[in-house]
Design a protein around this nucleic acid. Structure first.
Length: 582
RNA sequence: GCGCCUGUAGCUCAACGGAUAGAGCACCGACCUUCUAAGUCGGGGGUUGCAGGUUCGAUUCCUGCCAGGCGCGCCA
């Protein structure tokens, strides 16, 4: 039972409402701005009209009718609010018990039980650099995938590689003209990017290069025996590079089928659009009009260009159809930035086909584009682009250096560590700084890349969270040495800092839910920041371990244990490793 | 022209339609002979882009401006 349920029930009784309305009352409860005012608040504004009375008067009358005892220790009116104070000891016992019971499933749910969610994310372009900006889709998608799994969904992670299209013509053109096996073997993906950039730049002076690139891509599409093996080789090399980066970020995919795979069914899908009468000829191209459905001036979805070449849109249609027939998904998320119009066109076009062909399920309505903000300061043209691998390396090195400096300055708190452990901590802390930076603003805000901000380890950062976790683990290690063990509830009166921590722990499941509903991983980072802050407040004001007082120690250890469980669960949702030693 | 997104402290960002708009960074000061100081506490800092509207109440919702970013039939 939730802490707020008894409050809602008491309010229902006082208002002479039926028990069926307790849920509605419970949703109206809010949190006072500070603990001194109360633990939960009921605003009386909305009742004023029905009861024909002033909110403060209603609040005063209600407060007088709330029976105390059980979880509720006191109810007082404060202006238009009825503020509730809980029995801290009983409530703390309840919250800690809930965390212990659920353990690493605390915060999880079965909301998505029996349903499948496809998350398409990262989707790098093989002929283009994988720079820091690509972390956005990659991280948001990975976070959403973990969140939906935590909420009970069956999740499919799709990396829709940009492995097809004219850009491959450029790469192949460059390879045939300047290609060097040794350089390819040594630098793989970086070298391919250089080749692409060189060919593309020269094509701006010499348009015939563009024509040759198009011709090479046409030969690739036709399965030319000389070209196809090159494409396969380049694709494999690039993919291997991406996978190395993904591994460092602890991100995995179920499937890497990209545009090349989608193009296999493309012609058949285009024929279906034509046969169904959904696609029409326009200015020599084949398009699906969507303005009639969307209701404004918007371009049609183009399936085939006037020169007869297919478009990425046709491949996306084919891929979506294939995807639904394979997974029968209940949700399909595309983590792609700033393409809202395009996805609107895509989903409407597919819906039209569905209506014309009489599909039993209007699954295009289950598809959603999850957009996100732009990373500023990452322009390839201006030469600002920063490779993600380089940022990871720098983060790791700095984290390692910071730890070494701490050992030198304060060996008592930061004992000198074996090299292997130092390396692991560096990698973990660096990765945490990066991943947390990425989710520390809302999905749709633009973010600025700045080395010092990204690699910051103090304040509201990934390392700050890991540090709190390491401290919790340190307390348990020390407790073991002193022969102290956790109890199941506080032994004495619950102090403000302990109580604030308990209330924060209780909030985790609703933070997870908000993150899922809003497709907003930032909810988790924000929550964890407040949790770590609450813990540090507690930590700095109360000694957990006191061999002379095993009772108090046991109660506080229980609280630290619950905090650690929640912090670790949250960190894992963000893909950050909860470190035991820092 | 048609659309989407964003304007909050010097900077980076928060704030279920609710009480005095909060954190971090930076700056100034305090705290390690007690569990990790990557921490904690205090201080200065704000006309929430502008103007209307809805509401008991608007940073939040609606309309119009202003500013910035991004996307719009033959790039993907």
């Amino acid at each position: 039972m939730s802490l707020t349920t008894p409050i809602a029930q008491a309010l229902c009784a006082a208002l002479e409402l039926g028990p069926g309305q307790a849920g509605e009352i419970e949703r109206l409860l809010s949190t006072p701005p500070n603990l001194a005012l109360g633990d939960f608040a009921f605003p009386c504004f909305q009742l004023a009209r029905q009861l024909r009375s002033a909110p403060p008067k209603i609040a005063a009358e209600l407060a007088a009718k709330i029976p105390t005892g059980g979880l509720i220790s006191r109810a007082t009116a404060a202006g238009p609010y009825v503020n509730f104070f809980l029995n801290r000891t009983a409530a703390t016992r309840q919250v800690i018990g809930a965390v212990r019971t659920a353990a690493d499933r605390y915060g999880a749910s079965d909301d998505g039980a029996g349903r499948t969610m496809v998350v398409e994310f990262s989707s790098p372009n093989i002929a283009k650099p994988f720079h820091f900006g690509h972390l956005r889709s990659t991280n948001i998608g990975a976070n959403l995938a973990r969140l939906f799994e935590f909420a009970g969904w069956q999740v499919v992670r799709r990396n829709y590689l940009g492995d097809w299209g004219t850009q491959f013509g450029f790469v192949i053109y460059a390879w045939r003209r300047w290609g060097d096996e040794a350089a390819l073997a040594a630098r793989a993906i970086d070298y391919l990017v250089e080749l692409y950039v060189r060919a593309y730049r020269e094509s701006e002076q010499d348009p015939s290069i563009r024509d040759q690139a198009r011709e090479l891509f046409r030969r690739l599409e036709q399965g030319d025996a000389e070209i196809v093996p090159l494409w396969q080789k380049f694709r494999e090399l690039s993919l291997a590079g991406f996978v190395r980066t993904y591994t460092r970020l602890a991100i995995g995919f179920d499937n890497f089928d990209g545009e090349a795979a989608a193009s296999r069914n493309m012609d058949a899908v285009i024929r279906r659009f034509v046969t169904a009468g959904v696609a029409v000829e326009s200015e020599g191209a084949l398009v699906v009009p969507v303005a009639d459905v969307i209701g404004r001036d918007i371009a049609p979805l183009m399936l085939r260009k006037s020169d007869g070449a297919s478009t990425y849109a046709a491949r996306d249609c084919a891929e979506a159809i294939e995807r639904y027939s394979r997974y029968r998904f209940d949700g399909n998320i595309y983590v792609v930035s700033r393409q809202e119009d395009y996805f609107a066109q895509l989903f409407v076009a597919l819906s039209k086909l569905g209506k014309a062909e009489g599909w039993p399920v209007d699954w295009p309505a289950l598809c959603q584009n999850v957009s996100f903000g732009f990373v500023r300061g990452m322009s390839t043209r201006k030469g600002e682009a920063v490779w993600l691998e380089d940022v990871l390396d720098e983060a790791r090195d700095r984290a390692r250096r910071v730890r070494e400096e701490k050992s030198a300055a304060n060996p008592r708190s930061f004992p000198v560590l074996p090299t292997a452990e130092l390396d692991a901590i560096g990698e973990g802390v660096g990765q945490a700084a990066l991943l947390y930076f990425d989710v520390s603003s809302r999905r749709l805000s633009d973010v600025s890349f700045d080395w010092d901000t990204v690699l910051q380890f103090e304040g509201n950062t990934g390392p700050y969270l890991q540090y709190a976790h390491a401290r919790m683990c340190g307390i348990f290690r020390r407790a073991g040495e002193q022969g102290l063990a956790a109890g199941d509830a506080p032994a004495a009166a619950v102090a403000d800092e302990e109580w604030a921590l308990v209330l924060c722990i209780r909030e985790f499941p609703s933070a997870v839910q908000r993150a899922c509903v809003g497709r907003e991983p930032h909810e988790i980072s924000r929550y964890l920041g407040s949790l770590a802050s609450a813990f540090n407040g507690f930590y700095n004001n109360h000694m957990v371990l006191d061999p002379a007082d095993p009772g108090t120690s046991a109660g506080r250890l229980a609280l630290v244990g619950a905090s650690r469980t929640v912090l670790a669960n949250g960190l894992r949702l963000l893909g950050i490793r909860p470190l035991e030693v820092m």
